[in-house]
Nucleic acid binder design. Structure first.
Lengths: 540, 540
DNA sequence: TTGTCTCCCCTTGGGAGACAA
DNA sequence: TTGTCTCCCAAGGGGAGACAA
């Protein structure tokens, strides 16, 4: 039997307090819940610039998206109109939306050509995220057949849904969840049966049929302080025959729109469909510049991370490794020497499932300095579910030379096996600046991190803990002189080490509830032992 | 109780004999059933060129369609790229399709720029239509509520559906109808109740919900020899937010595609959505040339026919009359002196319902030579339902000066009241050509005709009878020297008069099962009485 | 003749625990 | 703990004649 008072409370609390929950875009300083939901649906590797960012717009990538969108193969034979392969722009407006009929996410991005190179630091503070928790449910056959509801995982419900009064026989509540269109969906959430399990009953069937969900699709629940959100991520794209206008018409239009925008220095708007073309054609200035510094000569071993969807956010990411086999123009006649998809990669062991594209852009991959040996997988760091990990106790911290610290993989990235030096930098040429130090990059890889509660990770110790835990050291580096260099979110460079406040300025005033980017394992070591590794200077 | 043997027969007969019924495009000489269904759904005033036709393509009209399609108001400020306002093209390919999700009809037309003016006669034989009958059902509340089926009109069923064995208590049959996508829909057709009525039961509900039909939408059934077809025509357009690409992107693309096609003399493809922009932006060469001859000076009284949908094919057409109030460029800076929508019209008595646009193109309207007086409606010619009219008996033919011939309106067009001259042409300057004669246009108007049985109207007497009957004279002009000049279907000019074979060559070998176009009432009269009327020369 | 109603059957949706993976 | 099953009840789809417009 449903408890009427609780239902009343929830209805009031969860649907009528939109003024307390920020679910619409309000400026550039907050990651609102709509945006968080959109990114969950888009995939964890998708990057969307923020208003004010300097970006490169690659028309070739845009044309390619249209071809996939229209299901036309091969490059059309249209002129380049003298358009350069990349156009430096400033982001004027970003709207994160979803298709009305298919719920496919897309970003409407307004750009204005601005060829002025950014001066000085391009660092931008990471926007404050509105505290939220979320979980993903990959739908089983039972979830989508007409006869049943949706089975939920206990831990997901406990972490994300409002608590039920478990003293009751079959506690239940009404949930009201907003989708990306702003539509409110009503679900009856009940904990019943022997043994007890959490089920979404009334309302679930309507949702499944309305969204045309099938087995394998993923349903995403995101809970803010006062409101619940729901999104979907399909395993296979719904057919959407767009017969409005011809593919060639659109491609002409895309190029000409950009050309006119350049000539008149006016805004133009593009639509980015991350589920169609994961390799975005709008690339952050910093990302692009960083990728230029890397030497992607043939034989270079590279890695690329794809988001393969599924249930656990951390395990959506699958890393592929391969070897550069060449660098050549995709379209030498129209866009010679374009960086877009200029690298040819031979990927290893990608017999089944998603495969990275044979052609990639430099900013989409990372070069691997040392070729890792095939290692036996260690349980440490392998398969850690962040939300299950509690804050490590002090007596749990492994020594640096602990066997566990030497062999570990996180998200498919080999991390351990390198000795961490405790040596302080011997050569402080700019000794006057106490916040300066040299670090040596030993290891690097892409990552996406996330915490259950923001408060738990406030401050830089929290960040360090999070990073350490992600890479399997469980706090071993929280105090010490080694640390990590981090390139996060929109490619703002930052560093975190065990010295607490040393890099505080670099990090800015951020809440590390979620961050994604590239982490490089570093340790402070004698400069003369430079070897083939990369040296970076971190200054406060 | 359903009769199993009959069901078997129908299933075999109606679904497994596609080789006997021509429902796909096969060349240019036949109007197949798919095409007939498409035109029923598109509206009776919609003109689509045929392969090989010479047409003018108006980029302005195309841009306008995109704006309506994308629900953006006002002309975008994009350059004309030096594109002319109209482009003479040859039609390379025409495909009549429907949107997958909304069933909205559209034509995919491939054109190739071809600036050579047509030489000699532009007459093209009217394609042979595959014999078919059809009816339209405007859906009532009872038809679309979940509890019921679809009530059918007895005459419609009798004319169009395969006959039932009425000796049975509740005769029934299974109907299998193909829609514009080729999908087969199954309907149980039963004649039951006291008194007997025809109802579609099983299968109807699925159809209604799948097509998202609501009260006021029209359902169209078309029966060929071996197969049934079903189409829908919505009262209001379904929302279809097309957020794929920006409106401006598309408009740029449209202009550039055309420009490139001109420069390289290559094909380009456009999509014409007649339900969005009824005034098509692809105009037959002949239609355009004819419209140039008309003097649309201010104060000229004009008429325009709109298809307002509904149940009876002949009464879908509503005529509006108005007065030219000006002629000016829609877009003087980009396309000066373009004929597209250059005429400003003030329409009379259009307070409610659909209103013709204030701006029209010359080929979309007809000028009215004499301002008709407000007349009392005559029952003759008013509201004739063609399918109910039997072939008139000889003793029923009214005399030319019969009162009934003077006052009649058909489809809102004033027809009667003009004396028909029996005078032969006095001046045969090219007397050597026996098939030449001068005719004077007295009266004209748009029309759509249709016959129940093709055989009934074979030959030119049949056509004359059809025209006469439509305009209320009921055979009065079948013999005589007056007649009609007809511009039909794809704007092939032809004439028919009462002399039987005189214009046989002009008409070609056609079955007049359906024709649409412009009819001008003519009579042969002395040249010196030319007055302000237009003279046309008809040569065999 | 045909639109709408009510009646009523029977299919289907969907909520429950049982049970097994 | 959670996916799938079966059971079973309730809602509603839909087929029938009655009746009125």
């Amino acid at each position: 039997m449903r408890s009427q008072p609780e239902w009343q409370w929830l209805k009031v609390s969860w649907t009528c307090s939109s003024e307390r929950d920020n679910d619409t875009c309000q400026g550039n300083d907050q990651v609102d819940l709509h945006t968080q939901l959109w990114h969950e649906c888009a995939g964890l590797t998708v990057k969307v610039p923020r208003v004010g960012d300097k970006v490169f717009y690659f028309p070739q990538g845009h044309l390619q998206q249209v071809e996939v969108y229209m299901k036309q193969e091969g490059m059309s034979d249209i002129p380049s109109y003298g358009l350069p392969s990349k156009i430096l722009c400033k982001v004027v407006c970003v709207q994160l939306k979803a298709e009305v009929d298919t719920d496919e996410v897309f970003a409407q991005i307004t750009l204005i050509p601005d060829f002025e190179e950014p001066k000085g630091s391009t660092f931008r503070s990471v926007p404050q995220k509105i505290p939220a928790t979320s979980f993903r449910k990959k739908l089983t056959p039972s979830d989508v057949i007409k006869q049943g509801g949706c089975n939920l995982h206990k831990k997901h419900v406990d972490q994300t849904f409002p608590p039920l009064d478990m003293s009751q026989d079959a506690p239940s509540q009404e949930l009201f969840a907003k989708d990306l269109h702003g539509k409110i969906w009503n679900f009856h959430h009940i904990c019943r049966g022997v043994p007890k399990r959490h089920i979404l009953t009334t309302g679930w069937g309507k949702f499944v049929s309305a969204k045309r969900l099938v087995v394998g699709d993923t349903c995403i629940f995101l809970r803010g302080q006062n409101r619940l959100y729901v999104g979907v991520q399909r395993a296979v794209r719904l057919n959407k025959l767009s017969t409005d206008l011809s593919c060639v018409n659109m491609q002409h239009g895309i190029l000409l729109t950009a050309l006119e925008a350049i000539n008149t220095r006016t805004e133009f708007t593009v639509y980015y469909h991350p589920r169609i073309s994961p390799s975005g054609f709008i690339v952050a200035y910093n990302d692009f510049m960083e990728s230029l510094k890397v030497n992607f000569s043939p034989e270079t071993r590279v890695e690329m991370v794809l988001d393969e969807g599924g249930e656990e956010p951390e395990f959506n990411l699958k890393k592929f490794s391969g070897i550069i086999i060449g660098k050549e123009d995709v379209d030498p006649s129209r866009w010679p020497e374009s960086e877009w998809h200029c690298l040819k990669v031979c990927w290893h062991g990608t017999a089944s499932g998603d495969v990275p594209p044979k052609r990639v852009s430099p900013w989409s991959i990372q070069s691997v300095v040392s070729v890792p040996q095939p290692q036996k997988r260690s349980m440490i760091g392998e398969g850690i579910r962040m939300k299950e990990v509690s804050i490590p106790k002090v007596n749990n911290i492994p020594r640096e030379d602990d066997e566990r610290s030497k062999k570990c993989r996180v998200f498919g990235v080999d991390i351990g096996g390198h000795r961490i030096s405790n040596t302080h930098p011997p050569d402080s040429s700019n000794a006057g600046n106490q916040q300066s130090s040299y670090i040596k990059v030993l290891k690097h890889g892409s990552f996406v991190g996330r915490c259950v509660e923001v408060s738990r990770f406030s401050g830089y110790g929290g960040l360090m803990w999070e990073l350490d835990r992600m890479f399997g050291f469980q706090g071993g580096l929280v105090s010490g002189t080694s640390g990590w260099i981090v390139t996060y979110n929109n490619n703002n460079a930052a560093a975190a080490d065990g010295d607490g406040d040393a890099n505080k300025k670099l990090l800015g005033d951020v809440s590390w509830s979620e961050f994604r980017g590239v982490v490089r394992k570093m340790c402070i070591c004698p400069k003369e032992k430079e070897e083939a590794a990369t040296w970076n200077k971190i200054s406060g």
